[in-house]
Computed example of a mutant assay.
Amino acid sequence: MATAKPQRTPQEVEDIIIRKIFHVTITGESTTTTGVTDSRIVYLELTAAEILSEGKDLLLSRDVMERVLIDRLSGDFPTAGAENSPFQYLLGCYNRAHDEGKKIVNMKDKNLRSEMETVVKQAKKLCVSYCRIHLANPELFASQNSNSGTGRSPLLPLIISECGGGGGMGVFGSGSDTGGVKSPPGFLDEFFRDPDFESLDRILKGLYEELRGNVMKISVLGNFQDSLRALLFLVRLPVGAKSLVSHEWWIPKGVYMNGRAIEMTSILGPFFHISALPDQTFFKSNPDIG
């Protein structure tokens, strides 16, 4: 007679789900639940030592979830590949949490399902929270593969992709390449839902400046649509509209400020500059319309 497979305890199930979401281990095992070795799984040796020193079992739980996430973000793990970038790692965690949430629905034990749904929600919330922290303070959790210092926000390709752009090309091939990156379901909604304006304002202002720069020298023959869609996406958000009108470049001030100067220096000016009509040589955009 076949021996019944031992039932996992709720603590063990919670440990497995957290390990799968955050791609970490505190036992040194870098294998998945199917026994396949995964180089993206990082061993947090110091975290494990701390947990043992507290007299706790080496099982991941909600109580240590944030500590584990901070330790993972604070280290530099070359074997993690693309996910050595803090933002890409957090985005990947959110995506895996979403996938785990879909699997949990099939659990027969209602109490266990409810507990694990809480775990997934907490994981998602932490991922979004630390994405905001990292984007507002790029120097935090900076790694060798981080986007900090490039002046480009890794959030913008997600917004462009969400708006249906990213693969579009202008008449002469100019386009916004998002690298095939897509926002996990619900990520952007949760990201911009934070009621704390200060936590998002710096991020939003950076996005507006980047969008302005994207279309600064783009003519009507180029791909300005992706940036325009992203702009519309942001200003539809109450927090996005508030951030835009409070930007110092919303209505630039100066002694010699005229229409042309406002067009060149304000956030929205470059969008209004796009035209099918030829302009003076100095202000011409690309591709040239003649």
Score class of each variant (00 low, 15 high):
residue 30 S to W: 10
residue 119 V to P: 05
residue 89 Y to A: 04
residue 113 R to Y: 04
residue 81 G to T: 12
residue 46 L to A: 15
residue 103 K to N: 12
residue 63 D to T: 07
residue 74 S to G: 11
residue 59 L to Q: 08
residue 49 A to N: 13
residue 33 T to I: 09
residue 32 T to K: 12
residue 35 G to R: 03
residue 96 R to S: 07
residue 45 E to A: 15
residue 85 S to K: 02
residue 66 E to D: 11
residue 37 T to M: 06
residue 68 V to H: 01
residue 110 K to V: 12
residue 131 C to E: 04
residue 36 V to P: 01
residue 77 F to P: 10
residue 66 E to K: 11
residue 33 T to W: 10
residue 32 T to L: 14
residue 42 V to E: 06
residue 78 P to M: 10
residue 79 T to W: 03
residue 132 R to G: 03
residue 28 G to Q: 02
residue 87 F to L: 07
residue 73 L to W: 01
residue 48 A to Q: 09
residue 102 K to D: 10
residue 99 D to E: 15
residue 59 L to P: 01
residue 134 H to A: 11
residue 42 V to I: 15
residue 111 N to H: 12
residue 83 E to W: 01
residue 96 R to W: 07
residue 37 T to P: 07
residue 102 K to C: 12
residue 45 E to R: 14
residue 92 G to F: 05
residue 124 K to D: 02
residue 96 R to Q: 06
residue 33 T to Q: 13
residue 72 R to Q: 08
residue 98 H to A: 11
residue 113 R to V: 04
residue 62 R to C: 14
residue 88 Q to D: 12
residue 56 K to D: 12
residue 64 V to P: 00
residue 128 V to G: 02
residue 49 A to S: 14
residue 38 D to G: 12
residue 102 K to I: 15
residue 80 A to Y: 00
residue 69 L to T: 14
residue 37 T to K: 14
residue 126 L to F: 02
residue 97 A to C: 05
residue 40 R to Q: 14
residue 45 E to L: 14
residue 98 H to L: 08
residue 128 V to M: 03
residue 75 G to S: 08
residue 124 K to P: 00
residue 128 V to L: 07
residue 88 Q to S: 11
residue 57 D to A: 12
residue 130 Y to M: 05
residue 90 L to I: 08
residue 68 V to W: 00
residue 62 R to H: 04
residue 92 G to N: 08
residue 85 S to Q: 07
residue 55 G to L: 06
residue 60 L to H: 00
residue 78 P to V: 11
residue 91 L to P: 02
residue 49 A to I: 14
residue 69 L to C: 15
residue 132 R to N: 04
residue 42 V to A: 07
residue 46 L to E: 15
residue 34 T to A: 13
residue 100 E to F: 10
residue 103 K to S: 10
residue 36 V to W: 04
residue 71 D to Y: 03
residue 133 I to L: 08
residue 77 F to Y: 15
residue 51 I to E: 04
residue 55 G to F: 07
residue 129 S to E: 13
residue 114 S to W: 09
residue 71 D to M: 07
residue 31 T to W: 00
residue 68 V to R: 02
residue 88 Q to R: 14
residue 78 P to Y: 09
residue 90 L to E: 04
residue 124 K to E: 03
residue 131 C to L: 04
residue 29 E to Y: 08
residue 120 V to K: 00
residue 80 A to W: 02
residue 95 N to E: 15
residue 33 T to V: 13
residue 72 R to E: 08
residue 126 L to I: 03
